[in-house]
Design a protein around this nucleic acid. Structure first.
Lengths: 154, 154
DNA sequence: CCGATTCAGTTAACATGTTAATCAACGGGA
DNA sequence: TCCCGTTGATTAACATGTTAACTGAATCGG
């Protein structure tokens, strides 16, 4: 049972012990470990996510890419523009549906990911060692369950 | 054991099954439930957090406020400016330490929180009902443990 | 008492989050 | 075929995230 705050007749959960705050802080702690690596290679967290997703699945349209990378469409538009200017990705129109934009990594983009991936994997391994793989797997399962439940609930 | 992706001789964890992504998506699912309420009252998520923290503890300096609300100092500067213009908070210099800015809710700010708090609590109760209080408490504990471990680990 | 250093806060610059508006391409129905 | 509602994507406008530079105030050491 969550403790409630009583004050002047109104109550709210303690701010520091709520899902929004703790999910935010947990993510912050995790990302702090990746930030130096990302900065060293001059990419943002979101740019890195987008390229990683593209590495997993050759080409795909912008909508699917946005969903998989968990980036909003307007942000993705800007990110793709930046990555295109840097020569890391290319875009072309879908010939079957002129509305869709197909995105793919360039050889340079693929090379970039391959060169940085080992450092990323090493950092993730560090985190796994600190937390323990079992606890991480448990946490990932619970997060997936939460997402599933909330996305379908009512 | 996390599945790894093998491709052209390099490997990375599946992007959709990593702490950064799942923490982000979980938070997104939770916040989506609060967003309509926040929009209806014309406050951002961060503005709401800042005022809630102030409601918990009368006045405090900007640094502590930023830490408790999990907002960066530059963001807080802008947020305080906005909330001040709307008459929801006031700021004054600490007489004992001229560097510090003390922040407090105005009566209007207190009234605002009190009027909106019930709706916020109702939404949190909805989430608790969907997920189950036990699962939420377990998740909160694990998140706190993760934060504690990562913030101190090497 | 003073100069150097540290500290709290703000400002600047750029990237992303968020919502709304816009635009072109699709696709269904009269 | 033509009209119109829908859809994918971009653009606009504003707020926040993020890092660095900067300002003023406090503190420390000589």
């Amino acid at each position: 049972m969550a403790e409630k705050l009583e004050k002047d007749g109104f109550h709210l959960s303690r701010t520091g012990r709520t899902l929004p705050i703790l999910l935010l802080r947990a993510r912050e702690q995790v990302m702090e470990r990746f930030r130096p690596m990302l900065a060293a290679h001059d990419v943002t967290e979101q740019q890195w996510r987008v390229m990683r997703v593209l590495m997993e699945t050759e080409a795909m349209d912008a909508s699917e890419l946005a969903a998989r990378a968990s980036v909003l469409a307007p942000s993705l538009s800007r990110i793709l523009k930046t990555l295109d200017q840097r020569g890391l990705i290319t875009t072309r129109k879908d010939e079957k549906d002129g509305r869709r934009t197909l995105v793919a990594l360039t050889p340079a983009g693929t090379g970039f990911i391959k060169s940085v991936a080992p450092k990323s994997a090493a950092i993730y391994a560090e985190i796994e060692e600190l937390l323990g793989q079992d606890r991480i797997e448990t946490l990932l399962d619970e997060l997936e369950a939460l997402i599933e439940t909330l996305s379908k609930g009512r």
